[in-house]
Design a protein around this nucleic acid. Structure first.
Lengths: 355, 355
DNA sequence: CTGAAAGCGCTTACAG
DNA sequence: CTGAAAGCGCTTACAG
């Protein structure tokens, strides 16, 4: 039942050649010549026996494992993780690289991170991807610096390692512009309260659109609160209770938008006709299932995973461009995902106006 | 900068002993004796140099890679994936095993699956975890059978490989019982329309509670529709429009429950006072953020991942118990997660009755 | 065009 | 109690 695993020697025997020759033809070794007749015999034998090279032996010999490690924080805590992994995994596979995933502990300290990196290093990974599960700045474990590495959804305080992050400002611009394009001038912004890049970038985007459209920035319309549904509800209630209330709300994330939906319902405001709402994150589960479906901005998780692997591959090949990328995080666009939560202001009739 | 990677020979030199001795003390080789003085010197040298064994060399020599492969379908399409991975990954780590993840294509056919398994086999994984992203029955690629393997959230038609699945019936019992315990007798069930184990199991659970409570099964109260929010809304509207409408709804999943929430709102029914609702899946993003927060049944993804690795480890060690598990899927409990969507029927006052 | 041989970094009988 | 040596399955100068 358990047939002995077949190796390169078995192929050589079956083809009546040396293992050297088998290796040459199967790897297409450059500068090696083999008669096409021999090549055929070898390939045939390999296929017939179902031979696949032992990657550990290969790796030991070539000093390249063909594996890259993905070190991620809270892999499962966030619904985003999957798409980063998917982007990294598919791109890795396209390069014939295997992705090894290691999850760092929730309350990981520097020592834990060191240990995680060491675990990967002992596995002889050729490079390391370091992903955090929301966009932030961090200082890296020292042992990461000896190996090709790239950061996902995080940037390196010291600017030594290339990193890729979402273009928060651009995403906010797309969101708010969708609102101004629909004719809104009084636009509330339920911002996060944490001092993270997303909070700053999305505010910048909001202000940029206002400025470009000639709308005066009104601090009354901007709030900072925890980025949770409950806080979103509370803050939306407050902001919508103003005499001259906004006709549209830009929410820091989809969960806050969910809270805003509830506030609107309680106030008898119909979305989008009495109130337009745009979110951020594009958490499908919420955005696509809430009623009406939420127009929001997508975080480019898949793309960041893919970009990171491509860049890592370049670094591993010793390309210099990779190193040049290190001092500035690379921004990936956050596209607007249009659903049903935006309409022109005061469009009290149930049907979209045809124009 | 790039210090040459240190190997066992460096440690041997530094400690003034042979590599054999280093290997013995670092691995705690059974039946090997080493003076405690030597042991100390070796350990000290290893620590000082920051030595970690090259796992590829180790693996090549011992014929065990210390890696297990997780083959998963649609790793990122579902929010569940993360918790399966997390459970598997943490358990693997506890056994000093590394998890290698490979994502099978969305429209994978048998040939693709064979190729995925081969990729893992070439990596010399010691065992394979095969996860589908929703509970179903499948036939396995032939090349999987030569290696220790266990199925997650899926069962093997041929009964050759151990598998772990959620206890759908038990979960449904917990859900419906929560309703009957609150005093409900007319309980609608918005079931899925697909013929999958969850559809059958959850219906069985529903009927079991009814039978145990002496409530006659009323087919009018049970629907089959796609398990989406929109269909959940439509079906809930219909079922709640009946003259003698149910006082509670058991929903196949949280998305359908979300649709039911909307139907209730439109009909002016306040949850939970006019209508109690219980869901299934415990998709945090929905269940915890919807208002009122949804009482639902959790799928034991983390636990399934952990169980699978434990079982795989047993299989790899050659334990016979593992093999015995193969003919019947192992069931893991689906616990009820109590939130705010259940109340006694006709509890029209806004405050919970104190008793 | 083809092959014999060394060696990647370990572990493990075996000898002393 | 300690060490010399073989060998895991490959690749790659090198020789012919």
């Amino acid at each position: 039942m358990v047939q002995k695993h077949i190796g390169i020697r078995d192929v050589a025997e079956a083809a009546g050649v040396s293992v050297t020759t088998v290796s040459h033809v199967l790897n297409n070794t450059p500068h090696s010549r083999t008669s096409s007749e021999t090549r055929a015999r070898v390939k045939d034998a390999a296929a017939r026996l179902g031979y696949g090279p032992n990657r550990m032996a290969q790796g030991l010999r070539t000093q390249r494992s063909g594996m890259i490690g993905l070190l991620s924080e809270e892999i499962a805590t966030t619904p985003h993780a999957g798409r980063i992994i998917l982007g990294a995994q598919e791109t890795a596979r396209a390069h014939d690289l295997t992705l090894v995933i290691i999850n760092s502990e929730r309350d990981a300290n520097d020592e834990n991170h060191r240990a995680d990196v060491d675990a990967l290093l002992n596995r002889q990974v050729d490079g390391i991807l370091y992903a955090t599960m929301y966009h932030r700045e961090l200082s890296l474990p020292a042992n990461l610096l000896g190996t090709p590495a790239v950061l996902i959804d995080a940037s390196d305080k010291a600017g030594l390692v290339p990193s890729v992050v979402p273009d928060e400002e651009g995403g906010a611009i797309a969101a708010v512009q969708a609102l101004t394009d629909a004719g809104h001038r009084r636009i509330g912004f339920l911002n996060n309260i944490d001092d993270v890049p997303a909070t700053r970038g999305r505010l910048d985007g909001y202000r940029a659109v206002l400025a470009a459209t000639g709308i005066t920035y009104d601090p009354q319309l901007v709030t900072n609160s925890p980025s949770e549904t409950a806080a979103g509800y509370a803050v939306a209630r407050t902001i919508l209770d103003q005499a001259n209330r906004p006709t549209a709300l830009f929410c820091y994330n989809d969960r806050m938008a969910m809270g805003a939906y509830r506030a609107a319902a309680e106030l008898g405001l119909s979305i989008p006709h009495d109130l337009s709402i745009v979110g951020f994150d594009n958490q499908e589960l919420i955005a696509a299932n809430i009623y009406p479906a939420l127009t929001t901005v997508a975080l480019p998780h898949y793309e960041m995973g893919a970009w990171a692997v491509e860049t890592l591959v370049g670094l591993m090949a010793g390309h210099e461009e990779g190193r040049l990328l290190a001092d500035q995080p690379t921004l990936i666009a956050c596209p607007l995902v249009v659903r049903d939560s935006i309409a022109p202001p005061f469009s009290t009739n149930q049907h979209e106006p045809k124009d």
